[in-house]
Design a binder for these strands. Structure first.
Length: 286
DNA sequence: CCCCAGGTCAGAC
DNA sequence: GTCTGACATGGG
């Protein structure tokens, strides 16, 4: 077992790993376990920072610093948020909530599977997919078996029926279709990171099963485009309830509001609003 | 039995 | 541009 300690302040590890941006983190032994790439990983948070444990020699830990976005100055990010009572409440209710920077393919595939599913169910589908079609990774003695996330090439080679067996329903042809486009190099996920936000979004929108919302999730959670602003039912609820309680703006109008109102780190603001609505405001509808 | 879930798509005005 | 229903599956 290889261990490393990262000194970091204002990092709410549990809330971050459990805030609907990643779907493979499980609480265990006072910490959190998952797989990043081909590596099993355990993270243990404390007031001083985060301890990481892996089985394979990490060479250096840059990949994890990047994944956890440890070098982000959260105070500076929060300072750019609009100073309104709702944002203040959202910040206060989940101090230290962060954005991760995940693998683009895993993030893309996970969010293709997310449509009209609750987060618990997305986690179930992803776990089933990994158990059935991922590759085993090394885990500690006595630990159960764990698989990596299956590659696009692997999924492209599966039949739609095999994918439906993982309980993903009508999302199966979307996932397969997107995996095929990647396997055939009709899109290069690595190249997307070097594009402008608009071009990157347009590229992702070419994939089947990827609309504006899922594209923005991938842009924000995997590519680090901090101006991407995914609007799902929860964020839509937040915008309507908090910012437009009387009027009833169209989704397109609301989207334009978000582009100007929340500033250069609007993606962060979005995550705070999402987490706030989901955990603190109950399921009031409007 | 009902309604809803980190939506997308095709087809209709 | 906006609205509608279909699409699987499971939670509450």
């Amino acid at each position: 077992m290889f261990k490393e300690f990262f000194r970091v302040r204002d990092y709410a590890l549990a809330e971050t790993l459990n805030s609907g941006q990643a779907f493979r983190w499980n609480p265990a032994d006072e910490g959190w376990e998952s797989v990043i790439g081909q590596r099993w990983l355990r993270l243990i948070g404390s007031s001083e920072g985060i301890q990481a444990q892996t089985m394979s020699h990490p060479d250096d830990w840059g990949w994890l610093r990047e994944y956890l976005q440890l070098d982000v100055d959260l105070t500076a990010v929060l300072a750019t948020f609009p100073k309104d009572a709702h944002m203040e409440a959202a910040i206060e209710s989940s101090r230290g909530l962060r954005l991760l920077k995940q693998d683009p393919w895993e993030c893309l595939a996970s969010f293709i599977l997310s449509s009209t599913k609750q987060i618990v169910q997305i986690r179930q589908i992803v776990e089933t997919l990994c158990n059935c079609h991922g590759e085993p990774v090394q885990t500690p003695d006595g630990h159960g078996p764990v698989n990596s996330f299956p590659t696009a090439e692997k999924i492209a080679a599966l039949t739609e029926a095999e994918l439906r067996a993982c309980k993903m329903g009508f999302r199966a042809p979307y996932l397969k279709g997107s995996a095929e486009m990647i396997a055939r190099h009709e899109i290069d996920l690595a190249a997307v990171s070097m594009m402008t936000l608009e071009d990157a979004r347009a590229a992702l929108l070419e994939l089947p099963g990827v609309g504006r919302k899922i594209a923005d999730c991938v842009l924000l959670f995997a590519y680090g485009f901090q101006g991407a602003f995914p609007v799902d039912v929860w964020v839509m609820r937040a915008l309507r309830q908090l910012y437009f309680p009387r009027r009833r703006p169209s989704p397109a109008r609301l989207l334009r509001f978000t582009e100007s109102y929340f500033g250069p780190y609007s993606g962060y603001a979005q995550q705070y609003l999402f987490h706030y609505m989901r955990t603190k405001m109950g399921r009031k509808r409007q």
